[in-house]
């Protein structure tokens, strides 16, 4: 006699389960903290560690909201949003920090490119945002005058 109906469904369920586990695994394995990018001392090096050597262009399609003056560099509110389609990643940098990369967000299929975060700024300098869409990087930046540095 061949395999029973119950056996058949068990086998199929097992196969389906392994498939779904396998489809999740690669993402989990590669979702690792990018220590090279976070430890880079220069903004350009951090960008290269994150995104390789993709072309970068300045873009007004990324909206960056920061205060003109931050009294306390330990808590500088930053908001980023964009209507640009196809964004897969958004990263926030503080140019004058010891390590400029502050945070990097995956824009997953269900994530909206609309984020806010409080960051530390060592001193007066530019907050730079880079968004990746397709094989291009889009950059926008704004100067924040910091009264008291927030990295000490």
């Amino acid at each position: 006699m061949g395999i029973s109906r119950r056996q058949f469904f068990r086998t199929m369920a097992g196969a389906f389960l392994s498939l779904s586990v396998m489809s999740v695994l690669p993402e989990r394995l590669f979702a690792r903290w990018n220590s090279g990018a976070f430890k880079a001392g220069k903004l350009d090096d951090a960008v290269r560690e994150l995104y390789g050597t993709l072309p970068v262009e300045d873009s007004s399609a990324i909206e960056l909201t920061v205060p003109e003056v931050a009294d306390d560099g330990a808590f500088v509110p930053v908001s980023v949003s964009s209507g640009m389609p196809g964004i897969t990643s958004i990263s926030i940098f503080s140019e004058t920090n010891f390590s400029p990369l502050v945070a990097s967000f995956d824009i997953l299929p269900r994530t909206r490119p609309n984020l806010s975060l409080r960051i530390r700024m060592a001193e007066t300098g530019k907050v730079v945002v880079i968004a990746k869409a397709g094989d291009r990087l889009y950059r926008t930046s704004k100067l924040v005058v910091v009264s008291v540095g927030g990295c000490g």
Partner: peptide, 10 residues
């Protein structure tokens, strides 16, 4: 949602 943070986050 997935984010990587460094020590520059408050």
């Amino acid at each position: 949602f997935h984010a990587e943070f460094g020590p520059g986050v408050s």
